[in-house]
Structure formats: C-alpha cells, structure tokens
Design a protein around this nucleic acid. Structure first.
Lengths: 261, 261
DNA sequence: ACGACCTTAACGGTGCGTTAAAGTTT
DNA sequence: CAAACTTTAACGCACCGTTAAGGTCG
C-alpha cells in the first residue's frame, strides 16, 4: 500500500512541506517516485521511520544530526554521549530562559510600583571589557572634594608623552574597609614610558561589568549609579572590584565589575 | 565627538556587523554618513540609544518590536501588556524546555538500565487527530476471543454502501469499570446512510494522542502498547478515553488519547 | 470541466557570522 | 608601502510557512 504525500502527511501528522523538506535533506526519502509525474509515494513502513525521526526531533536533536544518527543505527555506538550533550544544551536553554524571566519580572515589578518606569530608567547592559595597560594616580578623597580627580588627570596627562596615550581615560573608585573613599585616575597607554615617574603603571584586568551611559554631570551620574545598583540587586549580582568611570567626551560610562560566579 | 563604526562597536560591545544590521532594519541609524566614502559616524549619545536597544533585546523582545517600541516612547502607552506577553512567551519556552529535559532524562534512564534501548524501542509520538464520523458495532470480548473484532468489521463493511466509506477503519477498546473488555469496530463514513441499521452512528471526537506504529501482529502490538504505556508514565500523562487501533494495510497504529491537561 | 490534489521554485523570517572584493586612512 | 580600517554584497544557518505558476487525478 502506497500513500501519496497528502495522505501520508495526514496520517503522520506533519505537513506536506515538511515531508518534501525531509526528502531534500536526505532524511526521509519516499519509497517511490513516479517517473512521469514525479509524484511521491510513501509506504506504510515509513510511518514508523518518520516516527523515529519525530521522536528524536522532540528531544531537540537537529535534523542533520538525526540523519547521521539514523544512518549508523547498525553500529553499536553508545548513545549516552549524544543524550548527555542534548541534556546539557537543554539545561543551558532553561537557565537562560529563567534568567530572562527573572529580568522581565524585575522590570514588571518596577512598572507596577512606578508606572512609566521603563521609559525613564537608565538602560543597563552587561558587557565584557578587555584588560588594558594604564598609568594611574591614586589618592584619598575627602568628602565632597570630587573635583580633585580632574586635577589628577591633568597631572597624568602632563607627565606622559603624547604618543604613548591610548584612547581610554577614567577613574577607579575604591571603597576601603575603613569607609574612606579613594579615587584613582587612569589613562590607557600603548607602551610603558622609558622612565618611571610619580604615577603607577599597572594592568587594569579584564572584567564583565554592568554598564550604563549618562551625560557628564553629577545628577545624571547619581541616577546611573542608582540604576545599576537596582539592576544588580534584582539579579542577585555582586560587585567584584572597584567601580570604573570612563570619560567619553561629553558623556560618562559607569561600569560595575561583576563577580564571575 | 564622532566614532567610526569599529570604535563604536568596541565601546558598546557589539560587532560592526550588528551595527550595520541595525542600521539596515532602521533600528539605529548612524549620526552621520560621509557622502564620499560612505563611512558611518556615531555620536556618543548613541551609546545610550544602543544600550536601550540591548536592554530590550536581553528581555527577549524581537528587534522589530524594539524598533516599534522605541518609536512610540513619546506616547504614554502602557508597557505592562508588552511585558506580560514577553513573560508568557518566556514561561512557555521554559515549560517546553523542561518537558524536553524530562524526556531526555527518561530516555537516558532507560539507556542506562538497558544499553541499546533506544535502537530497539518503538518510537512514540504525540499527535493531534481530527474528529470523524463513524459507523460502529460494539460488543463485549470474552477473554481471548479477539478475532471476533474482525468479524464485526466484516459485518459493518457488508452493511454499508461502498460510496459512503471513508478511509479510516479501526477498533476502540473500552475497559469497563467491572473489568470487562469491550471492543467497538468502526469505519469512517462520508455521510450518514439513508436508513438506520444494526450499527451505531456516532462522532469519534478529536483527540490528542500518544501514538505508535507496528506491524499487524499480536507480538508487535503488545510491544507497542507497552512502549506507549512506558512513554506516558515517564511523562506523567494519563489516558483520557478508549484506546484506538487504526488498521493500515499491513500495519497498525495504536493511539492512546490523552488528558488535555 | 471542476476541484482537489500534486510538482518545482523562490522568498521570508531571526539575527547576525563569515567570507570576498575593493576602497580609505594612518 | 603596508597594516588596519572601512564599504557593499552575498551566502549560510534551522525549519519549514507561504505564495506562485503550473501539471494531474477522479
């Protein structure tokens, strides 16, 4: 007994288009093809073949891997590695989806409390930043004397030959155990300068950070800081190292390095 | 301050290709394009725009919907429906992934107990079956007298005019509360016959069923029944109505209708 | 002759990654 | 001059859904 593509599709519960596609990729070839009309014919036994395919598809196996899998059913290869790989993929998907759900819920909660929250809030994104070599100058900041930082930066700029300078400039904010606040102005350098001077040379390690952009004024910066803190709290993320401020012309990027856990 | 595409990509943490793509779909247009070289220029303020886009992308919103969303930020439309829709999508994804994980684990468990299980087992798939109109004949089966069923079928076939017959034939198996087993042979009909006769006319309701194909003999059928039961048990699925056997030439399809829950 | 089937071919969707070939800047 | 940038254009991926334009079957 032979079925035409439509009947076979109906019986097996897939579309005719799917059957044609499966033939094209060599996954399920019809039992016969009429030489004149090119109509496909499927045999009843192929209903079982298709079921095998669909069962594997259900497990999330890509079609081409199904083809490979079924091609070597003769061999007594171990299925477990394949299944374990599938399992891991699936778990990974769940993990990411769960994260996403958490994030949505966090935003949704804020929306409920403060309608229009989303349109006003500062967007926060997670970002990988490469390590860079910097020259830096660190000092304790007495309450309110934030403007000292720009003085440090000018001193650094003055002391470094121009051809060494990279494009990244900013400040690290250290909160010390005794409660005092330290600021460390830094400038990226392409190479180390020939001779030491009053500044430090160090590698700023690569980090994954929660980041936000704002315009370069105190009010906007405060808002951005606050947004990042809220964002991290709702995701259970923890600050791993000093916060970074990057100066971008008329804007500021705030980066909170994250625990890689 | 203007950035070229590579710098802007570096600062924002996306690829240049992504930026070009975002321009193409009208999601983020560069602040300027050099008329001669066609080099793109991005402004610092666009770092914030891109962050907004990425934050929405993180939530799983498709790029075109992000575009629509950002285009109407002026309006005070309620964001909650959108967020709730996203939430539902995400939950749905989790649900399916979790199902998939369960299924993989079920197979994996069997593989551990009986290596090579997968290659020998009867593939089971879940399938939606449409409702059909049938003529049927029901009777109690005394233990072992399964062959009575084919007699019923012959009687039905003899009593129905040929032009009424559909293509589906089979048997419903009723397990009654008192433990007795009833069989009901049925044949699909295109229209009701003009006059009543000894058979019943009824609608076989549409169902979602766990299905397997096997060759048309008792040993294979037993194996298929067993496979479906195992399959359903590992997924916590429950039989909702009489099992169905569909006759397909030299093969048999076994269908276990499922609780829609 | 009509409708319900079948055929191939091609585009679309999602979000870019990946060459390729050629021009620009430093 | 060479390296490192930029441009457009086009294919690829996974899995089909969806027309479109045309043959075939009952």
């Amino acid at each position: 007994m032979q079925y035409r593509i439509g009947e076979f599709a109906e019986l097996s519960g897939v579309s005719t288009k799917t059957l044609r596609y499966y033939e094209k990729i060599g996954l399920l070839r019809p039992a016969a093809v009429d030489a004149r009309t090119r109509y496909r014919s499927y045999a009843t036994a192929q209903l079982r073949d298709l079921s095998s395919i669909l069962a594997l598809r259900e497990l999330g196996l890509p079609l081409l891997e199904i083809r490979a899998f079924l091609a070597r059913t003769g061999s007594q290869a171990d299925r477990r590695p394949l299944l374990l790989r599938l399992r891991q993929n699936t778990q990974h998907m769940i993990e990411r989806a769960r994260q996403s759900l958490n994030n949505i819920d966090a935003v949704l909660g804020q929306e409920l409390d403060h309608p229009g929250f989303w349109t006003r809030t500062v967007p926060v994104v997670i970002k990988r930043r490469p390590g860079i070599r910097v020259a830096s100058l660190r000092a304790q900041i007495k309450d309110g004397h934030y403007s000292d930082v720009s003085r440090f930066e000018r001193e650094l700029l003055g002391a470094l030959p121009g051809e060494l300078l990279g494009s990244v400039r900013g400040t690290l904010w250290h909160r010390c155990a005794d409660g005092s606040l330290n600021a460390e102005a830094f400038i990226e350098i392409r190479h180390d300068p020939p001779r030491r001077s009053f500044y430090d040379l160090k590698d700023l390690p690569p980090v994954t950070a929660a980041c936000a952009f704002c315009s370069n004024d105190d009010a906007a910066a405060d808002e951005a800081y606050c947004a990042i803190r809220t964002w991290m709290a709702s995701r259970g993320l923890i600050l791993a190292s000093p916060k970074r401020e990057i100066y971008l012309d008329d804007m500021l990027e705030i980066q909170f390095p994250l625990e890689s856990a």
